[in-house]
Design a protein around this nucleic acid. Structure first.
Lengths: 236, 236
DNA sequence: CCGGCACGTATACACGCGTATACCTGAAAG
DNA sequence: CTTTCAGGTATACGCGTGTATACGTGCCGG
């Protein structure tokens, strides 16, 4: 096998990453992966691992970066495209999610983004199983990387929420909180989506509704209570 | 040491559970715990494990049941007591969370329940670290048990939301969804609460707001969109 | 053409592991 | 008083592990 062919498809690095994907998803924690086990699955000598990675954490980081690189861009493009399509069709008035039309518009956009996300999930099942596991796993390095990744996704969403003015009454902290909540929940739902194929259609709808409810909820709240601890009971 | 004393405080079973708590929280996955490692930590012979548990899953279940038994009752009592106190003080009108006074009342109740929950979290840090880890871990048995536990907490909350009529416009499915969302999110937040002591006051507030926002959001949503896919855009 | 080097291999060692088997002890039941 | 048995111990075996050391091989810059 020539060097070029190796680089293109079967590089040892790629083989090891794929082996780790397969093994870590089915077995225990990432850090508990055996180098020999890994080498076996990859069809390589155990020691070859060290030619490519310094540690299991190192491999884990590569895995996360690879998935974020694949998902982040397209997800955002999809959201912006869907939002733009809705605006092009119905005009830019009443986009505030607290108006009836704003809610329906949001639902439309959600449908597209949720679909794209879940499609990606089923095509990267192992990655999501591992990601969710390691989000609270033993490897501090992977935990941190995954938090960062989720935070990035949330930043994207928050930016778009502000750009398209869905939550005009809220300051950016609230928008950020809402986005973070959505992202976290979508990641958790991805596990259900993988494990329970028969519930997928209803999960799709539940996810759409959840996003709308969260944005709506945070949006409405700041209207009703003061941003810092207000102890008066205006209605009672 | 007599048999009675053993049963009361230092029973081998208890020693093993505590050892598992300490080790599984710091190390890798629960299933990756070594029986020897465990025996060492508990000050017992490795084989003694089998006198009490059939498998690591078995031990894990014992752990979960123990925590649920400690938390579920008090948490619910606290919520009901706080809700009752608010009603006693301000009357039972305008409890709907979509009214201004309803929101403020909800915030008051949230403050108490969130505080109780987080107090329990800091007093059972190991348990929560393990629980969160195993929620997406390799042990199907523990995953299932943890899901069931969260679902039970959500059921409690949903029942109370209905009893106190905070979401009168919503059908029970929606109430259940909102409660589940809250519970899941509270569990995730517990990790932050443990790991970042300096953020605890702000996490307390964020959690209160999150609960209010979610209940409010789901409550408001059903008013704005039809329960099944409505494709019309009334406002646009 | 040749030296370095990236990638992969082979062998070996010491260690911790799960578990099987047998044994001890003290409480309680008859 | 004797039997039973749950709880705890001791020893031993075979295995998979991480890693250290040394070796092979084909690509590429000089």
């Amino acid at each position: 096998m020539t060097r070029l062919q190796q680089t293109l498809r079967n590089s040892g690095k790629e083989l090891l990453i794929n082996a780790a994907l397969k093994l870590a998803a089915k077995r225990r924690s990432f850090l508990a992966l055996g180098l020999r086990e890994l080498g076996r699955e990859a069809g390589l000598n155990p020691n070859t691992f060290y030619r490519h990675f310094k540690s299991l954490d190192d491999l884990g980081l590569a895995l996360i970066e690879r998935m974020v690189a694949q998902l982040r861009g397209p997800l955002r493009q999809q959201r912006i495209a869907a939002a733009q399509a809705v605006i092009d069709h119905y005009g830019a008035e009443n986009v505030n999610i607290r108006t009836r039309s704003g809610t329906v518009r949001a639902q439309r956009v959600n449908r597209e983004t949720v679909r794209l996300f879940f499609d990606f999930v089923v095509q990267n099942q192992y990655g999501f199983i591992i990601g969710l596991r390691e989000l609270h796993g033993a490897s501090a390095v992977m935990r941190e990387a995954l938090r960062k990744a989720m935070s990035d996704f949330a930043d994207d969403m928050a930016q778009d929420l502000e750009r398209f003015q869905l939550m005009p009454e809220c300051d950016s902290l609230r928008v950020q909180q809402a986005a973070m909540l959505v992202v976290r929940q979508m990641f958790m739902l991805s596990m259900d989506y993988i494990e329970q194929p028969e519930r997928r259609p209803s999960l799709q709808r539940e996810a759409e509704d959840m996003i709308t409810a969260i944005v709506l909820g945070y949006s409405a709240m700041d209207d009703q209570i003061a941003p810092e601890g207000d102890d008066s009971l205006p209605g009672g």
